[in-house]
Design a protein around this nucleic acid. Structure first.
Length: 229
DNA sequence: CTACTATAAAAGGTTG
DNA sequence: CAACCTTTTATAGTAG
């Protein structure tokens, strides 16, 4: 596993299919991080609110069968290029989420920071499809597949020392390739990306509890090794 | 500034 | 069979 056979050194991004200017990234998110979760959790109260969920990927069963060409017409702004990817991409600007619809019946929602946002995204799309005359499933079961969160250890980290101390089985650190140290937690099967700043990105979790447990496990090991105040 | 490097995960279609 | 395509997101390096 040390060497990755994937070698995505070159991105086939600009290949055959011109993506019509692709990502309209810049826009409205300008002040995003300046505002600390003002409405996210009115009751959580600052306190131990260190873990910040950044992205939730969830899957569901939206409809029985979808004719994506028809859906593309019903959802304004939808992107559907079957030669590039079998799923139709639809973005909800108000939720800042994206949903991928497949002809089978499955759908994936990405970009949400709360489960409520995932539900709203699915409900909104479901309603649009229904209004377009398509049959949709009423209360689809939503499964969270992955949660990405950030945690700040508030303590600079010596990644080289951590790489040596925590062992080769759990750690991958190639600063010339990527500045973050990859730490794989066994129990809650999650992956932590550690940075010299003390910021930690946790991904691979199916539930928030996995992130909390994973973070605690990490802190415990770092403290045991004297690498965290 | 943008875009790439790395991480996880689902979907389904294609290619090797 | 595996690996890639696409979407999202934080993190932080480098290159252009």
């Amino acid at each position: 596993m040390s060497e990755k056979p994937k070698t995505k050194t070159e991105k086939p991004k600009a290949k055959a299919v011109p993506k019509a200017k692709a990502k309209p990234k810049a826009k409205a998110v300008s002040k995003a991080k300046v505002e600390p979760n003002s409405k996210v959790e009115p009751k959580a109260k600052a306190e131990k609110q260190k873990i910040s969920i950044e992205n939730i990927v969830a899957s569901t069963t939206l409809a029985e069968k979808l004719d994506l060409n028809q859906v593309a017409l019903a959802l304004d702004g939808a992107e559907y290029e079957p030669e590039q990817f079998p799923g139709l991409v639809y973005r909800l600007k108000e939720e800042r989420t994206a949903i991928l619809l497949f002809r089978s019946e499955k759908a994936n929602c990405t970009g949400a920071k709360t489960i409520e946002s995932v539900k709203k995204t699915i409900k909104t799309v479901s309603k649009k499809l229904e209004m377009a005359g398509l049959s949709v499933i009423k209360d689809p079961i939503i499964t969270v597949q992955n949660i990405v969160a950030v945690y700040d250890l508030k303590n600079d980290l010596n990644l080289n020392a951590i790489a040596i101390t925590l062992g080769l089985e759990r750690v991958e650190y190639e600063p010339e390739q990527f500045p973050g140290l990859v730490y794989r937690v066994a129990d809650p099967k999650v992956v932590m990306l550690l940075f010299g700043s003390g910021k930690v990105v946790c991904t691979g979790a199916k539930k928030v509890d996995d992130i909390e447990t994973g973070v605690e496990t990490l802190k415990k090991e770092l403290r045991a090794a004297g690498l965290l105040h």
